[in-house]
Structure formats: structure tokens, C-alpha cells
Design a protein around this nucleic acid. Structure first.
Lengths: 246, 246
DNA sequence: AGGTGTTCCGAACACCGTTCGGGCTGCTGG
DNA sequence: CCAGCAGCCCGAACGGTGTTCGGAACACCT
């Protein structure tokens, strides 16, 4: 009856939310032990390799299994899902974020630093922020980042309620920005010919617009100005300015 | 040789970016004409029906074709892609947005109104904002909304460069918020048991956290406070406050 | 009438995530 | 000591996806 207990697929996940147990005495598969034993660690790192060079859309269970010289089904002994795999990647990624010691006089640049680190990590692995959208906030590594951001904002003298909600706003925006940039550059590489265009072509199209778009035609230069990162800095500054004014 | 010319798959798309031509004298298929002729309009409206009741993830070419009582390949005479279909849906959705006449004294509530309309439309068709992320800014209907927002912000006295970038920030945030809400409620319905939990369970988990999360444990109430829409209003207010301070 | 262009659609291709069942290993309890 | 067993490994398959191909059927234009 209840003694059966499902073996270890999502129990492993549950365990991961707690303390990471050391290697439980490395077992060997039927391959005799000549090959690498295919741990969760190996899965994560090769997954990162694939995403870094080919994008998150190329991260397939089959592709990942092939890179590990095995079949797709072998992965499901270590990872419960593809969604779970994404959560693992996000967790690992958050673990590398450096959280500064909160300094009340420099909270603005400190929170900016954390957001920029997140952005750069996301952009290093294009499209991975798609997994960050669905990542449960129960993950320990992601909560460590939240804790750090909260500490910075509180040290800055913000109202606790404002600080709490601001964390949500900031992380959501960083995720969205990274996802959009990844989608655009992905489309830029996988479009047969045009579809994505440069700034001058953009200006030409705006100029050719009907007269029912007066502002867009008038301020086409402003609309197409700046790099992606400029816009990122702008929006972040916007939100932080809004925070400072409370 | 070159006289062949590719028929009309993505030329139709190009034409759609311009002026929408009326029905080019309804052709009939081999079905004799008893059935509805399966226009782009019919595709869009039944697609909206599916997304509204079953979510964007259920919007499959096969599912859509079945709803139209045909096969999947029949759709590709009217729609170039699934991505293109998504762009069509976003365009139609934007066409229903009401743009107020810019009033310099009420620019804040006016821009908020547009964003709220967008949010409600996105949430009415759960998950559709995923398509909005990739939607090319060349679409006429989406640009109509941009034009309206730009007009509002300019009337409010904002610097053109600030207004132009602010539109990007706002639409990106609205998209991201809607996508996140849709993902959460989708997960809430398709999770076998728990996985998504209520606020009290959230508080209990925060309380059970290790001591390395002092702020999170201390301000668990603030972190879990408020509905989704409260957070939306908060973030929007944050950005608009930031805008007003320039 | 004959050609031409467009639409409709069954079949198929390549790929995806995931499950099933069994073969294998190495530890463990009698 | 050795049978049992829990866990890892993996080929094969299932059901699903987006998309393409080739032909058949119709409407229109010369």
C-alpha cells in the first residue's frame, strides 16, 4: 500500500529545495564504469554549454542526452521534467550572483548592480529567462537573491511593503528584457533574409507611414535611438527613481 | 524562371501590413461551397475562441483546423506561420484598444488606462502575451497603440526621448506581467496536487526558512501581501512617478 | 475552351517530451 | 556467501507538435 512510495523522481526535487546531500556513494551503470556516471551536476553543466552556444530553444532532452552520450530516458532518473531542468538552471545561475553588503548610502547602485548581473547572466545563456518566468519562488538559490535585494532596499530606508513589491517589479522586468533581447537576436539569426532590420531601414519605414501616425513620424529618431542596454538602464533608472520618491 | 513568383503566403502578410484589402471575390474550394469559405477572419476569431477558453498553449494548428472542420495544411494558405498567426491575434487585440484624446492635465491616468486595457485584453486570452513578446513592431495595429501612447506622454510635457523609451518600458512590463499571471494560473489548473500554494502556506514556508534569510522571514507578510493587480498598479505607478520626475 | 492561379486537404516528415519495460550493477540482510 | 533488491541506464515506443508535398477541385481571364 503506502509502503511502496514512488522511488525518487520528484523526491529528489524536494530534497534539492532543502539541503544538498553529498554524492550518495556513486553507483555505476551497466557501462562498466568507464563512462562518466551522469550526475545531476553533469546534466546541468552540459545543458549550460548547449544553451550558451545554441540558445535555450536548442536545449532538447534528446539534444542534451546526445551530448551526454546516452538516450533521452536516462535523464529522467535525475530530473523530473524539462520544466524542472529549467528551474535547476535558473537556480545555478542565481547562485553565481554576487550580493554586496548593504550600504545605506549606495543602495541605488547596489540594486542596479544586482539587476545588471542578472541581466548579463541571462543574456549569456540566450532564452533561458523563459525558464525564469515559470521558476517557482520556492527555490533556495533564487530566494537568496531576493533576500539580498530586500536587504539592500531596506538598508536604503525604503518602506518594507514598497521594498517587497519592488523586488517583484525589478526581477520581472529583468526577466522580460532578457527574454525579449534573446528572442530578437534569435530571430535575427534564423530569418532567411530580412524580417529584422537595421536602424536606417526602421527610419525609412517610419517615414513611409500614413499621416495618421504624426507623432511616430515626427519622433522616429527618438523611437529608434539607443542600444538595448541604454533602454535597460533607462527603465531601471525609472523604477529606482520612482522608489526613491516614496 | 523568375516569372514564377512565390504565390501568396507571406505576400499576404506583407499586404496585411499595408491596407487591408476587402474580400477579393470569395473563391470556393472543392467542397462545393456549402461550408464556410475559411477566411483569415474566420481563423482569427475561432483562434480567439480557443485561447479564451483553453489558453494559448491549447492553440494548436491541428486543434484550430479541427475547430474549422478541416485539416492542418489548409491553414497555411492563409497564414504563413504559427508565429504569424500569433502576430495576427496581437494585432486584432490591439485594434480594440481605445485611445483617449490626449489631455495634458490627465496624462497619468490616460497612460494608465491604456496599459490597463492592454493587461485586461491579455488576461482575457491567457498566455497570448507570449506572442506579444515576439510580435514585430512593424504591425500597423500595434503601432497605432504606440502612437496613442506617445501622443499622451508628449501632451504630458515629457521629453520626446524619455517618452519614446517609456513606451518600450511600459509595454514590455505589461506583456511580462500578463504572461506571468497566465503561467501561474495555468500551472494552478494543471498541477496534479499542490505545487502552487495559498498565502498561508507561503507564510509557513517562509517561517521555516534557515536563519540565513533574516529579511525574508521578518517581512514575510509584506512579501506575500496584495493581489496580482495590486502589484501591477504598484509597478505602473512606480514607472510613471519616475517619468513625472524628469 | 483552355490555361492559370488559388484554395482545399490527406498523407507524410522530422522533431518534441515523456513512459515503459527490461537489463544491469552494487549494496545489504539473512 | 549469496539471494534479493533498490536504483541507474537505456532502446523502443506513444502521442503530440509545426510544417511541407502533391494532387484534386474550383473560379476566373483570355
Amino acid at each position: 500500500m503506502m509502503g511502496g512510495m514512488s522511488p525518487t523522481p520528484r523526491q529528489r526535487r524536494a530534497a534539492r529545495l532543502g539541503i544538498d546531500t553529498g554524492p550518495p556513494a556513486a553507483r555505476r551503470g551497466p557501462s562498466g564504469g568507464t563512462k562518466k556516471p551522469i550526475t545531476v551536476e553533469a546534466i546541468i553543466s552540459t545543458a549550460f554549454g548547449i544553451v550558451e552556444h545554441e540558445g535555450y530553444e536548442a536545449l532538447t532532452m534528446r539534444r542534451l542526452a546526445t551530448a551526454l552520450e546516452t538516450g533521452p530516458s536516462s535523464l529522467y532518473a535525475h530530473v523530473v521534467n524539462k520544466e524542472d531542468l529549467g528551474e535547476l538552471l535558473i537556480g545555478r545561475l542565481c547562485a553565481d550572483i554576487e550580493l554586496p553588503e548593504p550600504d545605506p548610502d549606495r543602495w541605488r547602485e547596489q540594486i542596479t548592480s544586482v539587476c545588471t548581473q542578472l541581466r548579463d547572466q541571462y543574456l549569456r545563456y540566450p532564452g533561458i529567462s523563459r525558464a525564469a518566468f515559470a521558476a517557482a519562488p520556492t527555490n533556495l538559490d533564487t530566494m537568496r537573491v531576493s533576500e539580498g535585494m530586500l536587504a539592500i532596499l531596506l538598508a536604503g530606508g525604503l518602506d518594507p511593503q514598497t521594498a517587497a513589491w519592488a523586488i517583484d517589479s525589478l526581477t520581472l522586468y529583468v526577466n522580460a528584457y532578457s527574454l525579449e533581447v534573446a528572442l530578437v537576436s534569435h530571430r535575427l539569426s534564423h530569418s532567411d533574409d530580412d524580417w529584422v532590420v537595421g536602424r536606417d531601414e526602421m527610419l525609412r519605414r517610419f517615414a513611409a507611414l500614413p499621416d495618421s501616425f504624426p507623432q511616430t513620424k515626427r519622433y522616429a529618431a527618438e523611437l529608434t535611438a539607443g542600444t538595448s542596454h541604454d533602454r535597460f538602464d533607462f527603465t531601471l533608472g525609472l523604477m529606482i527613481d520612482g522608489l526613491a520618491g516614496r
